[in-house]
Design a protein around this nucleic acid. Structure first.
Length: 264
DNA sequence: CATGTCGCCTGCGAGC
DNA sequence: TGCTCGCAGGCGACAT
């Protein structure tokens, strides 16, 4: 489940692979989620950027190719001479025969082409980038105060800050000692959460992302952050802070792990 | 506008 | 062994 650290890891590797390349041909799965891939034919790929969990690939003609990896999306160079992979949803070819492809078993991912900056939906209303100076303890405090939803639900909604998913939301709330179902977050707690969000995302990026099931890098490797998780997926195991077993609950319909003792 | 619910997808592991 | 079922879960569409 690619979240910001995974998408950022992919972005960095993809940049090397794509920058300056000309797309001369493309194929795609017939679903309208993926068929926009064909619109890139004839364009040059200038740069790969990221906003939240979205990859934004600048084209030379004033457009952008937007790719969301969804749950199981993988971007990788197209290997020559391999058997047909039924889960490849889009494939882009360069003039020299190389290319790259989007593999997405569960088809939760999405591909779009828009004129530069003309975003719609979630991408248009995303909260600040976590490492941008616009993301501050104060901005987080004010964003969380605007809604009465549980703090974790708000974080997953991408408005207080962009890029968190279930894994890093649980991690950040554990480090900040905030109960995920809490509805009111005061200034001190918001400041702790702000720091924790940056810390867990930074660690995730430094480890190349978290590979639990499907996530893999452009180079076909795994991330390393799964060996550093303090909370997510550790229900029943002892809390690294207090030693009591971590609990599993549901918040906003999402499986959530927390320490009932440390997180209030 | 804010919030809640549903549907999208498929592989995997538990249980019978 | 072979089957069913629940689960993983980000996000868009839609209803209230």
């Amino acid at each position: 489940m690619p979240e910001l650290p995974e998408v950022e890891t992919v972005r960095r590797q993809l940049t090397t692979l794509l920058r300056g390349r000309h797309v001369v041909d493309a194929t795609s799965h017939p679903s309208e989620k993926f068929c926009s891939a064909l619109e890139v034919v004839g364009s040059q790929l200038i740069d790969v950027r990221r906003r939240g969990k979205f990859l934004l690939i600048d084209l030379d003609d004033g457009r952008e190719l937007i790719i969301h990896l969804g749950m199981t999306g993988v971007l990788r160079p197209t290997a020559t001479g391999t058997l047909d992979d039924p889960y490849v949803r889009a494939r882009w070819h360069f003039a020299d025969g190389a290319g790259f492809e989007f593999r997405d078993v569960r088809r939760f991912g999405r591909i779009a082409v828009v004129s530069a900056g003309h975003y719609t939906g979630l991408l248009a209303s995303l909260g600040p980038e976590p490492f941008d100076e616009a993301f501050t303890p104060q901005s987080l405090y004010e964003a969380l105060r605007r809604s009465t939803q549980a703090v974790k639900t708000q974080l997953l909604g991408q408005r207080p800050v962009a890029g968190l998913g279930n894994i890093y939301a649980d991690e950040a709330l554990w480090f900040a000692r905030i109960h995920p179902a809490r509805h009111v977050v005061g200034r001190p707690a918001a400041a702790r959460l702000h720091g924790a969000i940056r810390d867990v995302l930074r660690a995730g990026i430094d480890h190349g992302g978290t590979t639990l099931r499907d996530y893999q890098t452009v180079e076909g490797g795994e991330g390393g952050h799964q060996h550093h998780l303090a909370c997510y997926g550790r229900g029943g195991l002892p809390c690294e802070r207090c030693g009591r077993p971590l609990s599993r609950i549901t918040v906003g319909g999402r499986t959530t792990t927390l320490c009932r003792s440390c997180q209030r």
